[in-house]
Amino acid sequence: MNAVEILQTFRDQHLFDRTITLGRNEYLKQSGTADTNIYLIEEGSVRIFIVDGEEERIIRFGYQGNIIVSLDSFLSGKPSEFYMQVIRKATVSIIPKEKFMTFIRSSEQYLQLWATILEDLVLQQVEREKDLLIHAPAERYERVLKRSPQLFQEIPHKYIANYLRMTPETLSRLKKS
């Protein structure tokens, strides 16, 4: 199943409990809180980050059509250090964990769907880890551009630069070359 089919399955099964709209800079989740919801970004964009000393470290983005989750908190039910903050006014549909777990346990097909989602999340994390280990800014930029070209249309460049661990000026130079 691809992402569009997965979303359609979620809609067909009426898993989305409610939809909320958040303004720029509002939080879906704060550090130190537990959050076991699954979020679908209907419109807008969100960044997921952690604070390291005085510095924010962006680890993921979500924009229209993306599902985001504080996976560590979702799986454990424990507080997570991640923040989820709206970058551009966002409309977000929410699936509570209890409803989702009842759904995936209702059939072998849905359990396999969950396995597919988890596999995709693990592979995304592996790619992100590779990006962080690559020292050359140009190579990090090229990898992310190839993997997620829409990111550069949806997310302000200052956030992409943070995600890529470079200055906005370096990102600007790379985009021009």
Rank of each mutant, 00 (worst) to 15 (best):
E154D: 08
K97W: 11
F152C: 03
I41N: 01
E81K: 13
R57W: 03
N66D: 12
Q30Y: 14
E98C: 12
S45V: 11
V122F: 08
I41Q: 01
F49V: 08
T102F: 09
W114E: 10
I20Y: 12
Y141N: 05
L22G: 14
R143A: 09
L15T: 05
S93P: 02
Y27P: 05
F10Y: 13
G65K: 02
D72S: 08
Q153I: 04
I20A: 07
Y141D: 04
G77N: 04
Q124C: 03
S31V: 05
K78Q: 10
E127G: 11
S93C: 04
A90C: 03
Y110H: 10
G32A: 03
R143F: 01
V122G: 07
T116N: 15
G62W: 09
G62E: 02
E26C: 09
Q13M: 13
S93H: 01
E119K: 13
I95T: 02
R24K: 15
I50H: 06
A138E: 14
Q13D: 11
K29T: 10
L123R: 03
Q125S: 10
Y83S: 04
I41D: 00
L75Q: 06
L151M: 08
L22V: 13
L145W: 07
I38K: 00
V86G: 01
R11F: 13
L15D: 09
G65Q: 04
R18K: 14
F10S: 03
M84W: 01
L28P: 01
T33N: 14
S148Q: 13
L145H: 04
E129Q: 14
Y110K: 09
T91C: 13
Y27A: 13
S107K: 06
E119P: 04
E26H: 13
I117Q: 07
M101F: 13
R47L: 05
E129T: 15
S106Y: 02
K78G: 02
E129C: 12
V51F: 06
P96S: 08
L40N: 07
P156L: 10
R47D: 15
E42D: 12
I58H: 07
D12C: 12
L75C: 10
V69N: 03
R128A: 01
P149W: 11
S70P: 00
T33E: 15
E81L: 12
S76P: 00
H14T: 15
G23N: 15
K78M: 11
F152R: 06
Q64Y: 08
E129D: 13
Q85N: 07
Q153W: 01
V46W: 02
E43T: 15
T116F: 15
S31T: 08
E154H: 06
F152W: 08
